[in-house]
Every structure is written in structure tokens, then in C-alpha cells.
């Protein structure tokens, strides 16, 4: 897959994302400045993490209005693949490409720590190298990762199998209730860590899989996501 990474002012995880993508695909992704509008030739558009526009007004609110986002939306409309991580997930919800919103973490503290994620389905281009129900380790680094959507939206997401990943304990137990000390620390509704669009080609998630792709990082649990994308 030909990949491009969108860079807004204040984004800071684009190079780690490039390392993860290049490691799995052997190809350097294209870096796309937020004022560019030509995404032709790209199969996968990645919106990485950081503090775009300083998180001013709301996380991702300004970035969602940048010139590039009209092209990102068109890319999604014609069946293109999009991966939004952390600020990228926030930007995708602000742009209306994914439903719901990311609120301030329920306990108000910025969370900079490991989490565990359960793979809800393994039949997407993102999760093809995981097993359904598998738990893997990822990293949280966010102050506003508390996923929220109204009941009608949640029922639709669940009903259509669009919940991609849930926060779990290390043993793979998804907590009842919205916030727990050992699994769902940001209070996301139904422990939702990531969601898909109906065509399963757009994935937004708050944790960082690109942090776990090299033995030097102490864990390579995120590598299967990038390997699957590279093989698609």
C-alpha cells in the first residue's frame, strides 16, 4: 500500500509512524503537509498523534478544517484506507468521518502508560494479523481519550460490528462500567478504544500501536497492524 502521513502544525508522532510503516512495508511513506490537497496515488492516509494547533478550542477541531481534510474525506468516500491514531482519531471525529467525540479523560489526568486492547474482529485490513479476541499491549499518551457517543450511535456501532478495539485488563477482560483502574482508565463508553467506518476501511484509535513495533521498545505487539497493512 502506498501510504501518506498527514502533518498538521503541532503533530509530533509522524516520524514514529513513518518508522513503523517503513519497517513493515520497506517503503518510506509520503509526508503530506496539511495545506496540500493532492492525495492521488495513495492507498492509505495516516493521521498521527500530537497536539495539532495546540489542541486549541478542542482537540483536532482546527485540524479538521484544514485544506487537506476535504481531500481526506474524498479519499474515504472513494473507499480509500485511513488510519487515525490519537490526535488523528480526534481529527477524524471532528471532521465527521467517524462518529462520536473524544472527551477529557474521566479522571482528568493525562495518561502516559501502557494499556491492553482486545481485537473485536480480525477480518479487516488493519487486524488481519491478529486473532479475534486476542489481547495486545499498546501505549496511551492522551489527556482527551474518553470516547463518547449517544446510545443510538453506540447501538449502531455495536450492531454493525464497527467497534474495532476495546480496553481490557492484561488477561483480556473488558470491564463492566465505563472506568476502571486496571483497564479502561480514560472512561471511554463501553471501553471503546477504536472504531471503524461501515466499510471497515477507516480505523480511528486512541492508543499508539506504532510505539510497539521494535524489540528496542520492549514490545512488538503493534507490529502485526503495520504488517497487515503492508501486505494488503
Amino acid at each position: 500500500m502506498k501510504a501518506g502521513i498527514v502533518v498538521f502544525p503541532g503533530i509530533n508522532r509522524e516520524r514514529d509512524m513513518a518508522i513503523a510503516l517503513e519497517q513493515s512495508s520497506g517503503v518510506k511513506p509520503r509526508m503530506i503537509w496539511h495545506k496540500e490537497t493532492d492525495l492521488s496515488g495513495l492507498d492509505l492516509v495516516v493521521i498521527p498523534g500530537g497536539f495539532s494547533f495546540g489542541d486549541y478550542l478542542r482537540c483536532g477541531a482546527m485540524a479538521a478544517q484544514s485544506p487537506v481534510m476535504a481531500s481526506v474525506r474524498a479519499h474515504a468516500d472513494r473507499g480509500g484506507y485511513i488510519l487515525g491514531v490519537c490526535n488523528g482519531f480526534q481529527i477524524l471525529t471532528e471532521a465527521g468521518i467517524l462518529p462520536g467525540a473524544l472527551l477529557r479523560n474521566a479522571a482528568l489526568r493525562f495518561l502516559s502508560m501502557d494499556c491492553h486492547l482486545r481485537v473485536e474482529r480480525s477480518d479487516t485490513v488493519f487486524t488481519a494479523r491478529y486473532q479475534k479476541g486476542q489481547t495486545f499491549r499498546a501505549v496511551m499518551a492522551h489527556g482527551d481519550g474518553n470516547y463518547f457517543a449517544d446510545d443510538a450511535t453506540l447501538d449502531r456501532l455495536e450492531g454493525q460490528g464497527l467497534v474495532a478495539l476495546r480496553y481490557t485488563t492484561q488477561q483480556g477482560n473488558v470491564p463492566l462500567g465505563d472506568i476502571t483502574k486496571d483497564a479502561n482508565r480514560n472512561g471511554s463508553v463501553r471501553s471503546i478504544a477504536g472504531i471503524y467506518t461501515p466499510n471497515l476501511r477507516v480505523l480511528g484509535l486512541m492508543p499508539h500501536p506504532e510505539d510497539m513495533v521494535d524489540p528496542l521498545m520492549g514490545c512488538t505487539d503493534g507490529k502485526p497492524l503495520f504488517d497487515a497493512l503492508a501486505a494488503a
Partner: peptide
């Protein structure tokens, strides 16, 4: 369009 996120 911008100042409020009408989802929340």
C-alpha cells in the same frame, strides 16, 4: 461549523 462540537 467550528466553535461548538454539536455532538457533545
Amino acid at each position: 461549523k467550528l466553535l461548538a462540537n454539536t455532538v457533545i
